[in-house]
Write a protein that binds this DNA or RNA. Structure first.
Lengths: 344, 344
DNA sequence: CTGAAAGCGCTTACAG
DNA sequence: CTGAAAGCGCTTACAG
């Protein structure tokens, strides 16, 4: 044998091109290749070109695991959402993915199920995965926990206002959204406006309701608590709400569902009862889900720009990761008038 | 100074508990801890207990990066989907997440946008991230490419039938689904059935249409091509199809939309024209999207169990990763009769 | 501007 | 059953 002392490379490594091979081919040191890869130091143009050429020829792709282990960063950010298939947050996830990707970060999506304990487990899981930062989309975790987590790694949270180092919060003005919806109904001459709320204790819902009341008050109209029924943010809640409201026998000409899913349920219940929207009843939702444009009739609603929210959250994260202190203003609610509302 | 030669640990490492610290505390070697962690060898019970205790006391969590680098596995699997917020695949993603997680794998979701080039880029990205396997949900990539990829790492693909080593395919019987829908309409006495298809060249769509024709033929009824219009699998296609069909002035009493999104669009168009579903027109969809139960009226459709599909795909992947050769039968289509169809 | 070397935190033959 | 040691593929002080 010509060379019995040649060390036998681990078989796993076969076919894998490493930074060392690039260095050898380019005739420079391993460190130089690394520096060029990371733009971490000024390197002479000639070497840079040689390295770039070698990288291209070998079709070299850095191993992120090695990179993470050595550099202490994983180039990934954890995203805790209610559920990976949430109808509302879907667009937000896409917004996050599409802004993280060009920045060289991967998103790790996990479902928190809007449950404090599961969310805690998600944080542990993600920290175990060594993500560089975490985005929490409207979770249930108390502020105190969040502040603690923010000490360990960059955090951006939506759906609340919270100040702390290493943490940026992106709130949404649900109050204003609620106000907008009711103002619209009032402008159409509706005086008796029923409301289906979200889950009890859900801040978004109580804020939207406050906005509703504020609009009423501004118009000099009384708020009648018998016209509000507790929902669940799901379609079924909308169905039940209509039944309940009708059973109460208190007249109303319009219904404000505090989210689109409940509006869809309400539309179905009304449809079954032979009530025509908007001739017999005006209906307003909240969120502007993708499918709401194609509801029959298309739903008038308050738009919460989910995609943009995700985009913003990701941008904040990227800046936090750079050591900057981003200050952003969250997107504003806007009223989208379609065909489910009509003047009395 | 008492000990000027103590090596200074990398600052990154502060606060991180390593396998070495566990070993020291438990009074065993590093290798033993690793073996216990991985169940990779039989270890005496006493040592195992000591190690477990140390792990608990130190709150040790293995570093997945180091693990991957040393072990050659990343404990993650890439999932290429049309879009992270696809209404149909949402449930499939959840199914994948929920079965991968207990098996110790993380899912890396990326959007392929049903585009050959983007899907290729996704494969590169995921391989760059060193995923252990890839699940492709109904992509556009040709079979040949898939077979090539399967040589490099385990692959499970849905929406086609393909045999190759290291690859398992999970097809769905779209033909049967199409047959079921039309058979239902026929059983209600409908003879004139219009059809809105999906994007041209989309295999799912052509299969569903074939099923439709087969049902017609079995009933001894002619297939009238003037009753089919080309759609796009989006709501807008459903809207346009209704307009187009009506413009053709060929009578029909029912409409089979080859997916639920188009059915929603068709329902809207019919609603605007004052046509009542199902009194004036019966409507059948395909997929059974979550929101279809709450359409007004609730949509009769062919159910494609997305969650279960994701679950199965993930199970196959886990078995492939174990070196097994899973053989599975894909879930069957089922007809879900709701309120959008009615006897003539 | 550039190398040699240590180190990131694990896994896994190898040799008892 | 168990250790010592090499190695996974990088990054980053350290020293020119």
């Amino acid at each position: 044998m010509s060379n019995s002392t040649t060390p036998i490379k681990n078989t796993k490594t076969l076919g894998t091109v490493t930074i060392e091979m690039v260095a050898q081919r380019a005739g420079v040191s391993l460190s130089t290749v690394s520096r060029i890869l990371n733009g971490t130091a000024v390197v002479s143009e000639s070497k840079k070109q040689a390295v770039d050429k070698a990288i291209a020829e070998l079709d070299f792709v850095p191993n992120p695991m090695a990179r993470s282990l050595a550099g202490g960063r994983s180039q990934s950010v954890g995203v805790i959402t209610r559920a990976i298939d949430s109808p509302f947050y879907g667009a937000a996830l896409r917004g996050i993915e599409e802004t993280l990707d060009p920045a060289g970060y991967s998103a790790l999506f996990v479902s928190g199920h809007f449950d404090v304990n599961i969310e805690k487990r998600c944080f542990e899981l993600l920290r175990g995965r060594r993500v560089d930062g975490i985005i929490l989309l409207t979770g249930q975790l108390p502020d105190a926990n969040l502040k603690t987590y923010a000490k360990a790694l960059p955090l951006v949270v939506t759906g609340r206002t919270l100040k702390a180092k290493g943490l940026v919060s992106l709130d949404f003005d649900n109050f204003e959204g609620g106000r907008l919806a009711t103002e619209h109904l009032l402008s159409l001459g509706h005086q008796k406006i029923a409301v289906v709320t979200g889950e009890a204790g859900h801040k978004d819902s109580t804020e939207r309701l406050r906005g509703h009341c504020a609009a009423l008050e501004a118009a000099g109209l009384p708020f009648d608590p018998r016209l509000v029924v507790a929902g669940d943010y799901l379609e079924l809640g909308g169905v039940r709400a209509v039944e309940e409201l009708l059973a109460r026998k208190i007249p109303f000409t319009s219904l404000f569902a505090l989210n689109d899913q409940m509006a869809a349920g309400a539309a179905l219940a009304l449809h079954r009862l032979g009530k025509h929207i908007p001739s017999d009843m005006s209906l307003v939702g909240f969120d502007d889900l993708p499918q709401s444009v194609y509801a029959a009739p298309p739903l008038t609603t308050v738009r919460q720009p989910a995609y943009q929210l995700g985009e913003l959250a990701a941008q904040c994260m990227i800046r936090l990761l750079k050591g900057e202190t981003p200050s952003v203003k969250a997107p504003r609610p806007t009223l989208i008038v379609r065909e489910s509302t009509k003047a009395t």
